[in-house]
Design a protein around this nucleic acid. Structure first.
Length: 930
DNA sequence: GACATCACG
DNA sequence: GACGTACGTGATGTCC
């Protein structure tokens, strides 16, 4: 039906529905897997009631649910504090938002949103259009910001109170007619949306003024006439702020919607769509109610919580498991139906290699219940028989890749289906390169990491062994090793089905074993806010990569090679014979046997130690050790950096794509591998020049933002040290302050050497200080170092108290925690002997290092939204630094937003007594940006 | 594959 | 009370 006179449009404020549903219900979770689902349940109940209430004679002819999209709108461009005082969305609500869209579609109601616009603006646009065409409009919302739209056939309906808000209602609320509501709001401001308005003027006064002068513009033009001096002054002085406020509250009736009112015609819902959705969500009461209403059988919803202890014994042994080989669309469709019915699926991708940026997808395995898995081979090569050369022909029994991916894409992207993987970042990147953005996800590796960090590794083999008592089929016999190793596409399909299916089966069983325990271990929030959301963020960073200039590296390599050759000749001359300078064993024999230099300590393998500290000592005795040190420095730079980095430049992108391991470091830090971009030289002048090879694309610059002294700030907060907190608040040099306190030297008489010693002590504290360690670091007698430590604890007794408290906690619980609740297990803390001393120092360090790691993780997770729409990409993380590639003209904006995200990263979960500060730099390359 | 060494925070 | 020792990582080359 064409929209026009006699038509009636309903516009439902989706966000209002969601928040009302969220707060009205307790935090319900889906029984089978613990997915938070309360808001979706409430939302569906509200939609259902809406549909039943609106089927009578006054039923709407057109209807739509309107949602907000994106956190940044044109109002933020006008005023950066707009809605800035809003609390962040609750963590358990976030994953439910896409499900409310799906729910709306399942009820077959039009569901509209527009990037960069608030729902209110879309509602305004549609209401204006409908009014022009002579139709009636009912806005289902009680939001006062929408009241400006009332009149001329437009009404509002407060669905909760079931009251209609018409022109009289608006006048009662604002004291003016609807078209003047924006004027009143502009003056009165709004604390909820953080609209400033005019200070000291509320709704009552505003209405009075508007009614007297007619409208806001006239009022402001004639402000001089106002009798009350204070009011007059405010209106004159705050004119700009008031006019800005009006722009903020004025809804936009011209949003560029890409649909028409005709598209919103009311449609009956399809029970075959709605009931399966409700079944997936496991809404028992609602699906029964709707089924009864429709006079059909209600869907069957299993009562068994997965991962329940009672469910585990039912799982068949691995050798009894069924492995389906999927070779056609019909077979795959059966599995897709199974997945939709379940609402979750374990996924594993098989590829030609471990480098996600170059590896090709070979096949996909799926599992929906223990013991029942399948493998979809896609790119296996035909066996070439006795021919030595591999065949390019595809093996039999494979469906076309494109067809399989097209069928799987909707499932893998379906917000109502959880995709479970072991190290999902790998699979997500492979799938992303095949056009599939897998979401939402769960990751067994990260579940284990959240629960077991410090207890053991989190690789699949170790987890399967430990928690399932099953040794997975090893990959080695299938691929071979060394020169004769083959890639997975050459593995016979029958073998691949067994191997790959089992991996998905194991993953699903691990998930069922872990998921219910997450809550018991009280690390649900850690997993949901610090682990899982990081996966897509890191995947994006890794896929984007950083541009590295091969020529720069290559020139440096040649220069290093020349210098090394010269040094090598000198070294051989000094030694009186040629030997391998790179061999510590041979070097040791030259130094201590042939030249009989003093020292000559042996390491645990019985060879002489020739480390930097040893060689530096010897450098006073002989010329040779110094030359070796120079040679080693160059050798390190050449082999690890200027040579190796070149091999990591991706030929397709011309960029280097590292891989971050999320569950590698026990403390919560990330680790970077293949290549490690977290240890690119910076401390030596010569090494730092390697960073000149890391460059921005044309028209861009690299921008580096790093936390200043984050670990010491966290220590000051956690140990609650007033002097340190005050020093950070005052922006003092923290090492100089420590030195001043300890050695009674006034700050303005500080010498670099005293400050250096204090700095070493500050770091020592973070590391779980010992007299021996500090002595070695400062190269002072052990007794003197111990004296420093004693004095430090005398001066800062709170630090000693914190360390004692941490140690006692660790001994009692065998774990320590970060401020955000991350647990780091310290099983050896109660061991006998030196291992306990190690565990003790690690226990002191872990909460500090781990809290800093949590902070930057939170910043990284929020960053994509914060810089959305700007020409900027987050490229690298180096523990306390984030590196971005930014279009030249957007640098200031990106720095402002990224800094804000980083500095406020602990909020609202944790309030630090010490503020975090971030330093920024920019330049054409990483050396210049840092 | 163990070990020594050294790059980073 | 003795034990060894600063915390957390990854990559490379040598040598077996």
């Amino acid at each position: 039906m064409k929209f026009g006179k006699g038509c009636h449009l309903h516009l439902i404020d989706g966000s209002a529905f969601i928040f009302r549903a969220y707060h009205a219900l307790p935090p319900l979770t889906r029984r089978s897997d613990g997915l938070p689902i309360g808001a979706v349940a409430g939302f569906c109940n509200m939609l259902h009631r809406y549909v039943t209430d609106n089927s009578g004679p006054d039923a709407p002819t057109h209807a739509a649910v309107i949602f907000d999209k994106g956190s940044h709108t044109f109002r933020n461009d006008l005023y950066d504090l707009y809605k800035a005082n809003r609390d962040a969305m609750p963590e358990d609500l976030r994953p439910q938002i896409p499900l409310t869209r799906t729910a709306t579609e399942a009820f077959n109601i039009a569901c509209e949103e527009l990037e960069g616009f608030e729902a209110d603006d879309i509602i305004a646009t549609l209401a204006c259009q409908a009014r022009e065409l002579g139709g009636r409009v009912t806005i289902i919302s009680s939001d006062k910001d929408l009241m400006q739209l009332v009149g001329g056939g437009v009404e509002m309906l407060d669905a909760m109170k079931n009251t209609v808000i018409d022109v009289e209602g608006v006048e009662a609320r604002f004291g003016v007619s609807p078209e003047r509501v924006v004027d009143v709001q502009a003056l009165a401001g709004d604390s909820v949306d953080n609209v400033p308005g005019a200070p000291g003027i509320g709704v009552k006064t505003a209405a009075l003024l508007i009614n007297e002068y007619g409208d806001l513009e006239t009022l402001l033009d004639r402000a001089e006439e106002i009798k009350q001096p204070k009011r007059r002054q405010t209106l004159i002085e705050m004119r700009a702020q008031i006019e800005l406020s009006k722009k903020l509250v004025q809804l936009d009736c011209n949003t560029p919607v890409d649909f028409t009112l005709d598209d919103l015609e009311v449609r009956e819902y399809d029970p075959d769509v709605l009931l399966p959705f409700l079944a997936e969500m496991e809404f028992r009461t609602l699906s029964r109610r709707i089924a009864e209403h429709l006079n059909v059988e209600p869907p069957v919803i299993s009562d068994a919580p997965i991962g329940d202890d009672s469910a585990t014994p039912d799982a068949p042994d691995f050798d009894q498991a069924t492995h389906d080989h999927i070779s056609d669309a019909a077979g795959l469709q059966t599995w897709i139906d199974l997945i939709h019915h379940r609402g979750y699926v374990a996924v594993d991708t098989e590829t030609t290699g471990l480098d996600e940026m170059t590896a090709d997808l070979v096949g996909i395995s799926l599992c929906v219940e223990p013991g029942h898995a399948c493998y979809i081979p896609l790119r296996h090569k035909a066996s070439a028989g006795s021919d030595l050369f591999a065949s390019d022909e595809l093996a039999e029994g494979q469906m076309p890749v494109d067809e399989a991916l097209a069928m799987l894409k909707p499932v893998f992207e379906d917000p109502a289906v959880i995709k479970i993987g072991q190290n999902m970042k790998f699979d997500a990147k492979i799938l992303a390169r095949n056009g599939i953005n897998v979401a939402p996800i769960d990751d067994t590796m990260l579940l284990s990491y959240a629960m077991h960090a410090g207890l053991h590794g989190h690789g699949m083999d170790a987890l399967s062994e430990r928690y399932l008592g099953h040794t997975p089929i090893p990959i080695k016999p299938l691929l071979g090793s060394g020169k004769s190793a083959i890639t997975f596409d050459k593995v016979p399909v029958a073998d691949a089905v067994r191997y790959a299916s089992e991996d998905a089966d194991i993953t699903l069983r691990l998930w069922q074993a872990f998921k219910p325990n997450l809550h018991r271990a009280q690390v649900t929030t850690v997993y949901e806010t610090l682990e899982r959301p990081l996966v897509p963020v890191l995947a994006q960073m890794e896929m984007h990569g950083i541009k590295v200039d091969r020529d720069t590296l290559s020139r440096m390599s040649s220069a290093f090679a020349q210098k090394m050759a010269a040094l090598e000749a000198e070294i051989h001359e000094l030694a009186g014979e040629t030997f391998n300078v790179g061999s510590p064993k041979q070097l040791g024999e030259i130094l201590f046997d042939k030249l009989s230099l003093p020292g000559g300590k042996r390491g645990k393998a019985g060879a002489y130690t020739t480390s930097v500290t040893v060689l530096e000592e010897l450098a006073t005795e002989h010329d040779l050790p110094g030359r070796v040190l120079d040679w080693r420095a160059l050798s390190k730079l050449k082999s690890t950096y200027t040579d190796a980095l070149q091999t990591h430049i991706n030929p397709e992108t011309g960029r280097v794509h590292t891989s971050y391991s999320i569950a590698g470091a026990n403390t919560g830090r990330l680790a970077s591998t293949d290549p490690n971009l977290q240890n690119i030289p910076v401390r030596s002048e010569e090494g730092r020049r390697i960073r000149e090879a890391f460059i921005a694309a044309p028209g861009n610059v690299l921008v580096s933002l790093d936390y200043s002294q984050i670990e010491l700030r966290i220590l000051a907060h956690m140990a609650d040290i007033d002097e340190l907190k005050q020093a950070f608040a005052d922006g003092l040099d923290i090492h100089a302050l420590t030195a001043s306190e300890m050695f009674n030297v006034p700050m303005d008489e500080m010498t670099p050497d005293i400050r250096r010693q204090a700095k070493a002590i500050n770091f020592g504290v973070i590391y779980g200080i010992s007299g021996f360690g500090l002595a070695r670091n400062l190269r002072i007698p052990r007794a003197e170092a111990q004296g420093f430590i004693d004095r430090y604890f005398e001066r800062f007794p709170g630090i000693r108290a914190y360390m004692d408290k941490t140690k006692a906690f660790a001994k009692e619980h065998e774990f320590v925690q970060t401020l955000f609740g991350r647990k780091i297990h310290t099983p050896e803390i109660n061991a006998k002997g030196p291992r306990a001393a190690f565990a003790y120092r690690a226990a002191i360090n872990a909460p500090i290092q781990g809290t800093a790691a949590d902070v930057i993780r939170r910043a990284m997770i929020r960053m994509p939204d914060a810089i959305e729409g700007l020409p900027a990409k987050m490229l690298l993380q180096v523990h306390d630094e984030l590196l971005f590639e930014v279009a030249e003209d957007a640098v200031d904006e990106v720095v402002a937003r990224a800094r804000d995200v980083m500095e406020s990263a602990p909020d609202p979960a944790v309030h630090l007594d010490v503020k975090l500060t971030v330093e920024a730099g920019q330049g054409p390359n990483w050396a210049a940006a840092h």
